[in-house]
Simulated assay, not measured.
Amino acid sequence: MTIRRKWHTVAEVAEMLGYGLSKTKMLVATGQIRSIKDGHHRRILPEWVDQYISARVSEAA
Results as ranks from 00 to 15, higher is better:
Met1Pro: 14
Met1Gly: 14
Thr2Cys: 09
Thr2Pro: 05
Ile3Gln: 15
Ile3Glu: 11
Arg5Thr: 15
Lys6His: 13
Lys6Ala: 15
Lys6Cys: 06
His8Met: 15
His8Arg: 09
Val10Thr: 13
Val10Phe: 02
Ala11Pro: 04
Ala11Gly: 11
Ala11Trp: 02
Glu12Gln: 15
Ala14Ile: 07
Ala14Glu: 01
Glu15Gly: 02
Leu17Tyr: 02
Gly18Arg: 09
Gly18Val: 08
Leu21Cys: 08
Leu21Lys: 06
Lys23His: 11
Lys23Met: 03
Thr24Met: 05
Thr24Leu: 02
Thr24Gly: 02
Lys25Gly: 00
Lys25Ala: 07
Leu27Ser: 01
Leu27Tyr: 01
Thr30Ala: 08
Gly31Thr: 08
Gly31Phe: 11
Gln32Gly: 10
Ile33Val: 10
Ser35Pro: 08
Ile36Phe: 09
Asp38Val: 15
Asp38Ser: 15
Gly39Ile: 03
His40Thr: 02
His41Tyr: 11
Ile44Asn: 11
Leu45Gly: 02
Leu45Thr: 02
Trp48Phe: 03
Val49Ser: 01
Asp50Ser: 04
Asp50Ala: 06
Asp50Phe: 01
Gln51Tyr: 07
Gln51Gly: 01
Tyr52Gln: 00
Ile53Ser: 02
Val57His: 13
Val57Ser: 09
Ser58Trp: 04
Glu59Val: 03
Ala60Ile: 06
Ala60Met: 12
Ala61His: 01
Ala61Arg: 07
Ala61Gly: 08
